[in-house]
Design a protein around this nucleic acid. Structure first.
Lengths: 342, 342
DNA sequence: AGACGTGCTGCAATCGCTTTCATGGCGCCT
DNA sequence: AGGCGCCATGAAAGCGATTGCAGCACGTCT
């Protein structure tokens, strides 16, 4: 039923080889003939059979994207970016949701990786060892939001985002800042924590109160909000907007005024940040660009086994693409309440 | 480099044919041999080449999901459901974002449809004519959130959701209810509108004020919020939660109290509904189930050209799967303000 | 004029797997 | 004991595209 290259060739009065070349390597076939073949193909509605092509070329024209949670606006935005860029390049995207589970993630990469040209692995939850194994397969792998020796990656400047946030809070007079961290084992959380302490250290008199690890969702924020108050912090920095929103919600519910009593800062600037009142001050992450750049990096840079070994025998990582972030000040942060009383 | 069926066959001392059967049609090969082959395959880490299989069987093991906007929590949730169910069935999902554009949607269905076993088309924006054409191709097509003659579909009971919402508002004393409709041409919006008027008609003294078509996003809600007040409605029903949130935001911003002055009802019960204060009263849609059932319906019911013609010559639609919805009452709805003054 | 290069084209092999068909061996029935 | 049929197996034919290689025709250089 579907029209094959053979059909086109026959109809155009050329051999299949010529028909193929007319479409894929135009410079190899005489102009007149080439145009004729193309016209016939168009008119017959010819669509190359991808399976057949893949079988011989080894390329599928598919990319795979693995994310921890499609419903998380952060990943949804990245997915959208990946999607858009891939389409522009004529690639299709196979999406998989790992349900925040490192093992499932590993399995998905293994299963899906075999049938695509490359895998974009977003905020991987898997261990470094599992990552090593995944890299050992011969599928180009690109990490988003995580760095790993030998792996190509696109990341944001986690530490700098925190630095900007802290500088902002410090400027408003906050000296005791709580941090609601991300999931245990989150690479980006570790970077932010690090940046947080460095930033605090460089700002005289600034103390950091770590509130521990929090599930990166609304309820996670709800569950730590009281700790902010209990620790007498005048500001809290959350691992992401969802957590910030949860904190905000709980604070307001118990009568704490934001930003009068406590300032709240999120991270990501997901759409939800402006859904609430007061609108969330947050660190804007170029979500869509993260996705786009991931595809570009994967296509350009990670063609079949990106890791090489240097003469010294060390594993050489391709330099990560690092995207800058920018603090967006909205209504959830304000001048610090006068310390203690008043 | 990758291990092929040939390798397995050679290693196991059987012909490729037998190896193939041992893995795909176990009953056709002697138990001892079968197990041996399977063991060898496992041990060699054999992974069938999908392209080769597809080339001969014509089945790809891929499903395609087309949604208007991946970042919209409604579609994200459906995508997640589709994803999960497909994985359980051993299928991969190719996701495409049509950017709310009917033409792009049509093109995507055409392009991607050719390389998958079936397409789940979610809330299609394309015209009925384009849908007809899409159906004419021989790719099984399943519609979510839209019905169309001759197409299999999974929908929610749009009208009933609105009915429940109206009944709730009516019970609270609201008599003048505004409706912020969905995008022009939205099938579900038409169903809801219809249900709205029917519900209103059955409830004595209830008036409906149509606010027109609204972009199904936060800003869309913001832009019609003032109309609610201007029309002296005491309650407003929005096409979805995002719009409801926008309305809520704007009302609060201009000092209208919710629910004291105006009650707001959303639709979908997306996660965002509980992010705000007051929490949104909304119609809960079984989002994940929508996705799961879509996959099931596609796989079971729409195998290659679901439409048939009855003896009478009419096009026979497979009966749509209709999922029920349920009103979730939260804090954005309350007893109607006494009419006019006081 | 002959040799050689260049530019197009077609033949045929090939990718890895499935599936039809033919074959050989064995058990069972009469 | 012979014949029939069934079961398990292997040989081989593709699925639809790409591509190395060879060949042909023509133009050019010597």
């Amino acid at each position: 039923m579907p029209v094959t290259l053979q059909d086109v060739a026959r109809e155009a009065g050329v051999s299949p080889a010529t028909a193929s070349r007319a479409l894929n390597a135009p410079e190899l076939v005489a102009p007149a003939r080439r145009e004729h073949v193309r016209k016939v193909a168009a008119q017959l509605g010819y669509r190359p059979n991808r399976a057949a092509r893949e079988l011989i070329t080894g390329r599928t024209g598919n990319l795979c994207l693995v994310v921890p949670d499609l419903e998380n606006p952060f990943f949804a935005a990245v997915a959208k970016g990946v999607q858009a860029r891939a389409r522009a390049l004529g690639l299709a995207v196979v999406v998989a949701d790992s349900e925040e589970d490192g093992h499932l993630e590993t399995e998905l990469v293994g299963r899906l990786g075999a049938q695509v040209d490359g895998v974009v692995l977003c905020s991987p939850r898997m261990t470094d060892e599992a990552l090593d194994e995944a890299l050992a397969r011969d599928v180009p792998l690109l990490l988003v939001n995580r760095e790993h020796p030998g792996a190509a990656s696109v990341v944001i400047d986690n530490a700098d985002g925190v630095r900007q946030a802290v500088a902002h809070l410090h400027a408003l007079g906050h000296r005791r800042i709580a941090y609601a961290g991300g999931p245990a084992g989150s690479w980006s959380d570790a970077r932010r924590r690090e940046g947080l302490h460095r930033a605090a250290a460089s700002l005289p008199g600034t103390e950091v109160v770590e509130l521990g690890h929090v599930a990166p969702v609304f309820d996670g924020g709800v569950s730590v909000a009281d700790l902010v108050v209990a620790n007498a912090a005048t500001a809290v920095l959350a691992h992401n907007d969802l957590v910030a929103l949860g904190i905000l919600h709980r604070l307001v519910a118990r009568g704490v005024r934001v930003p009068d009593d406590v300032s709240v800062v999120g991270y990501d600037d997901s759409p939800a940040a402006t859904l609430v009142a007061p609108a969330l001050t947050t660190v804007r992450v170029p979500l869509a660009r993260l996705g786009r750049d991931a595809v570009d990096a994967l296509v350009n840079h990670a063609p079949r086994a990106a890791r090489r070994r240097t003469a010294s025998g060390e594993t050489e990582s391709p330099a990560p693409v690092r995207l800058s972030v920018e603090l967006v000040v909205r209504d959830s942060t304000g001048v610090a309440a006068t310390a203690g009383d008043a």
